[in-house]
C-alpha cells in the first residue's frame, strides 16, 4: 500500500493497532464545496493520524480556490466540473470506491467538524461484521459541539419520523460522519439521495436491510464556512426531508431487498 509511507509512526499508537487489526482497504471521502479555509487542516490531520487510509477530496465545483489548494498540496482529489450538491459529491466518492475495490468507505465533512481520531471506533463494528453502516453520533454521549437548540429539535423530529417509518432508532440522523461496508458502497454508488441526503440515506440503508449502528463521536463547531442549512432554508429543509423520507419508505415498501 503506497499510502502507508508514514512520517510520524511513533506518536500514533492507536492507529497502528487498527493497521494491525485489518488489511481492509479504506477510503475516506471528503466532499468539499468552498472549503478553502479548512480543507488543508482536515487533510493534514488525516494523513497524520490515519496514514494507512486512502482519502479522496471531492471538489464539488467550488467557486473559491479549493481546487488550487488541492493541486498545490498534491491532495488526492476529484474535480467535479459542475456543482452537484452534497449528495452527488458524496456519491462520486462511492462510485470511485466501488470502481477501485475498496472494502470500507468513510465519509466526513471537509469543514473540520468531524474528528479523524474516531475513525477506529467507526470502523470497528464493520470490521467485526456487526454493522453495515456506522454513523458517528454527537448525541450518544452528549460531548462536544451539540448544535443549536432549534436544530436539535429538528433532528429529533426527523429521528422520530425515521423510527415511525422504519422501526429503527437512530438519534443523530443528520450526521455526515459515516462508514459503510462494501455492500453499501455498491448500493450508494447506484442509489444515493440528493439535496439533503443524510436522513434519506439512512432510510435507503434500512430498506436494503442494512444494519445501522451509531457510535458516539465528539464533533467540533465548524472551523469555517456555514452549514448548508441556514435558518432561512430550515423550513424548506424540514418539509423536503420529511417528504423524502416518506417517499423513500413508500418506494421501497414492497421491494425490500433480500440480504
Amino acid at each position: 500500500m503506497k499510502n502507508r509511507v508514514l512520517n510520524s509512526y511513533d506518536d500514533c499508537k492507536e492507529i497502528e493497532d487498527v493497521n494491525d487489526m485489518t488489511d481492509a482497504k479504506v477510503l475516506i471521502i471528503i466532499p468539499a464545496y468552498n472549503e478553502s479555509e479548512s480543507i488543508e487542516n482536515v487533510i493534514d490531520h488525516l494523513t497524520d493520524q490515519a496514514p494507512w487510509c486512502d482519502y479522496l477530496v471531492i471538489n464539488d465545483g467550488s467557486t473559491d480556490n479549493t481546487l488550487s489548494i488541492c493541486e498545490q498540496e498534491h491532495f488526492h482529489y476529484l474535480d467535479l466540473p459542475i456543482n452537484l450538491g452534497i449528495g452527488g459529491a458524496v456519491q462520486a466518492g462511492y462510485v470511485y470506491a466501488r470502481k477501485n475495490n475498496y472494502d470500507i468507505a468513510v465519509q466526513m465533512d471537509g469543514d473540520g467538524q468531524h474528528d479523524i481520531a474516531y475513525l477506529k471506533d467507526m470502523l470497528q463494528p464493520i470490521l467485526d461484521g456487526e454493522a453495515d453502516i456506522v454513523i458517528g453520533s454527537r448525541f450518544l454521549k452528549k460531548e462536544g459541539f451539540q448544535s443549536s437548540q432549534s436544530r436539535r429539535i429538528g433532528i429529533g423530529i426527523l429521528s422520530m419520523l425515521i423510527r415511525l417509518t422504519t422501526g429503527q432508532r437512530i438519534i443523530d440522523v443528520t450526521s455526515g460522519y459515516r462508514a459503510v461496508n462494501r455492500m453499501f458502497i455498491d448500493i450508494y454508488s447506484r442509489d444515493y439521495p440528493t439535496d439533503y441526503p443524510e436522513p434519506e440515506a439512512i432510510v435507503t440503508a434500512i430498506m436494503h436491510r442494512g444494519r445501522v449502528k451509531e457510535v458516539p463521536v465528539r464533533m467540533r463547531a465548524r472551523e469555517s464556512g456555514t452549514s448548508s442549512i441556514t435558518l432561512r432554508k430550515s423550513v424548506y429543509y424540514m418539509i423536503k426531508v420529511t417528504l423524502a423520507i416518506l417517499i423513500c419508505r413508500l418506494s421501497y415498501g414492497f421491494r425490500r431487498a433480500k440480504r
Binding site: 471531492i58 488526492h76 474535480d79 467535479l80 466540473p81 452537484l84 456519491q91 462520486a92 462510485v95 470511485y96
Partner: peptide, 14 residues
C-alpha cells in the same frame, strides 16, 4: 444522467 456523467468526468479527470 448529468449527475452520473459529472461524477464519471471527475473520476476520469483524476
Amino acid at each position: 444522467k448529468i449527475r452520473s456523467l459529472v461524477q464519471e468526468i471527475g473520476i476520469l479527470d483524476k
